[in-house]
């Protein structure tokens, strides 16, 4: 590769670009993740907007929500909420552990977080199968499946990111100095958790 690299740089004075000047104390990757999450919040925002339209603005909205005889599985989803919120704490524990250089605690924390996320997702799939209504059963079902489905997709993305961390973690990556690869999926995972609390309160409790 060295001869190739020389070809790229044209001459022999340089071996790559000059280091970019850091004009902000914020880390570029963290800022990128936060902006991405901002965009994601707006995507959820559009789903909450349509929820607001069909339930509040719509003059023909049913007075009881969900319209009988349908019911939302509030209790099962509540247990699911507890699982997901706990997984945020284990994620934080994993990150703190790698920052302190405790590898086995880090790996244990990551695996527990991943398993809890997976349990959440599988519970949701089972909930879908037994919920007693389908997407075609009216606007209440549309927003129910819309919001929980959108969130489920985000859990799936989050699990992919956590899976990456676990694979790399077991292969010996990450250290107290280099843990951005843990921190960024962690930020995303916390976002997914907090968003679930909002979704759960809106869809199931309100």
């Amino acid at each position: 590769m060295t001869s190739h690299a020389e070809a790229v740089h044209g001459g022999h004075e340089h071996h790559g670009p000059p280091p970019a000047h850091k004009s902000s104390r914020v880390d570029a990757r963290v800022l990128g993740m936060l902006l991405f999450i901002g965009s994601e919040i707006m995507l959820f925002g559009s789903f909450f907007t349509v929820y607001f339209f069909v339930r509040v603005v719509n003059p023909d909205a049913p007075s009881e929500w969900p319209p009988p005889p349908y019911e939302f599985p509030v209790f099962v989803a509540g247990i699911n909420t507890a699982i997901l919120v706990t997984s945020s704490f284990t994620m934080h524990w994993a990150l703190q552990s790698i920052k302190r250089g405790q590898r086995s605690a880090f790996l244990a924390g990551m695996v527990i977080t991943f398993v809890m996320g997976l349990a959440f997702l599988l519970t949701q799939v089972i909930e879908y199968l037994h919920v007693g209504f389908n997407t075609g059963d009216g606007a209440f079902a549309s927003v129910f499946f819309g919001l929980t489905g959108l969130h489920g997709a985000h859990v799936a993305v989050g699990l992919t990111l956590l899976g990456m961390v676990i694979i790399r973690g077991f292969r010996g990556h990450f250290s107290p100095e280099h843990h951005h690869g843990v921190e960024l999926p962690g930020i995303y995972w916390h976002f997914v958790d907090i968003m679930w609390i909002v979704v759960y309160s809106t869809v199931y409790l309100l």
Binding site: S46, V54, T135, G136, A139, S142
Partner: peptide, 25 residues
Amino acid sequence: AGSQFFVMFDRIMHTSFFTPEGGGY
């Protein structure tokens, strides 16, 4: 993105985000 998802769900998955017959707005 959201608006086009809703239309597509209405078209394919028979949801009723925007169809008044199903309670949409």
